[in-house]
């Protein structure tokens, strides 16, 4: 209920009115799980925008995977991240136990799992190399489609380390779903390629 209010009454007006989204290939968005949505990561707004792309009835299925060390760092943050944003926490940097357990369970329940394989928000509006967690997750669920989505402009609106949101129109490019591949390096290369191909014809104004 709290999560519904947060996304319906706060996040949606924010992403659709304060920011404004230009969605390319909206028809490619999946209408049910299980699916692994893979996006580039520049801002806290990335998750908000991705979830706003889907109808509210899918909200219980939409689960962003987020770093436990950041999102669970104190009790309030942990409560807010788990109950309101609805994250699946993942331990970064080789902690004990199975880091992908939560995400894997969610996929088994036909959830739509959102993954940012860059690992952190990094420098705004720059795509860094993908971490291989997505391949390992795919390995456990080889039949589940993996769908790339490219986001542009959110790093301008709210970059890392800034608390002030400045409105910008943002571009969302939805890619075609792809299948998992046993060859890890080939898979990672293919995913990166598809991500880059999504924005090949796009024109972004310079931002230095």
């Amino acid at each position: 209920m709290l999560r519904w209010c947060f996304y319906a009454l706060l996040v949606r007006p924010l992403t659709w009115i304060v920011l404004g989204l230009n969605v390319r290939h909206r028809e490619r968005l999946p209408t049910s799980g299980p699916v692994i949505l893979v996006a580039n990561h520049n801002s806290h707004l990335d998750t908000m925008v991705l979830i706003s792309l889907f109808p509210l009835r899918l909200l219980p299925k939409l689960r962003p995977v987020a770093a436990a060390d950041y999102f669970l760092k104190n009790r309030f943050m942990a409560w807010f991240s788990m109950k309101v944003i609805g994250i699946i926490p993942v331990a970064r940097g080789g902690a004990a136990g199975d880091p992908l357990e939560g995400a894997s369970d969610a996929i088994a329940r036909s959830d739509m799992v959102i993954l940012f394989p860059e690992g952190s928000r990094g420098e705004p509006e720059q795509l860094t190399g993908f971490k291989k967690g997505v391949w390992h997750l795919g390995k456990r669920h080889p039949g589940v489609p993996i769908q790339p989505v490219f986001l542009h402009g959110l790093g301008k609106a709210l970059p890392r380390g800034e608390a002030l949101l400045v409105p910008f129109f943002c571009d969302v490019f939805v890619g075609e779903p792809m299948a998992w591949m046993p060859d890890r390096d080939a898979f990672m290369k293919e995913l990166q390629c598809r991500m880059n191909a999504l924005v090949q014809d796009a024109h972004f104004p310079p931002w230095e």
């Binding site: 402009g153 970059p159 910008f168 104004p205």
Partner: peptide, 11 residues
């Protein structure tokens, strides 16, 4: 917003 999104701006 549209204008600022289409012109080059400085970080």
């Amino acid at each position: 917003k549209e204008f600022l999104s289409m012109i080059p701006t400085r970080r």
